[in-house]
Structure formats: structure tokens, C-alpha cells
């Protein structure tokens, strides 16, 4: 029991310091523009997302998402 608790604690601690690697696919007209405008307004958000600009979310192929996870993404954010 005690052993498990310690493990759980350790796990939690690891999670706290965990910085996920997230890939973003942003639509040029919408989400990418919103992200630019967030910059202009100096809003702050976590620095975990790397962005690939596409002209529209319709461009996103199933293969892209699968490949992103294969390349070690902990999450994929598609923004239209």
C-alpha cells in the first residue's frame, strides 16, 4: 500500500513537470490569424505547440495526424 502511494506520488510529480509536445495544424484564414492576433495583443499561452500552417483544415489528411503521433506528438491540435 505504502509502496503504491509512493509510486503514485512519483507519477504525479513526473506529470507536473511534463511538457507535452503538441503539433498544431492551423488554418491560414482562421486559427493562424487568431494566433497572430493573440500575439499582437500580447496574450500569453503555454509554449508547447508547434504550428504547421495550412490554407484550410480541409487540407489535413488522415496520414498527417497519424504521422504526427508516430513522430512522438503527445497531442495534435487542428484549428479551423
Amino acid at each position: 500500500m505504502a509502496q503504491e502511494n509512493v509510486l503514485e506520488k512519483e507519477n504525479e510529480m513526473a506529470q507536473e513537470g511534463f511538457e507535452p509536445r503538441i503539433l498544431g495544424f492551423f488554418c491560414h484564414w482562421c486559427c493562424y490569424a487568431a494566433a497572430d492576433s493573440a500575439g499582437v495583443s500580447r496574450y500569453q499561452y503555454p509554449p508547447n505547440v508547434r504550428v504547421i500552417r495550412v490554407m484550410c483544415t480541409g487540407r489535413i489528411d488522415t496520414r498527417f495526424i497519424l504521422e504526427a503521433f508516430r513522430c512522438g506528438a503527445d497531442g495534435v491540435f487542428t484549428g479551423g
Partner: peptide, 9 residues
């Protein structure tokens, strides 16, 4: 800039 320096100051 817009999506990095400005938002992770």
C-alpha cells in the same frame, strides 16, 4: 514573433 516571442514573453 507573433506566435512565439510575443506570446511566451
Amino acid at each position: 514573433r507573433d506566435q512565439c516571442a510575443w506570446v511566451h514573453a
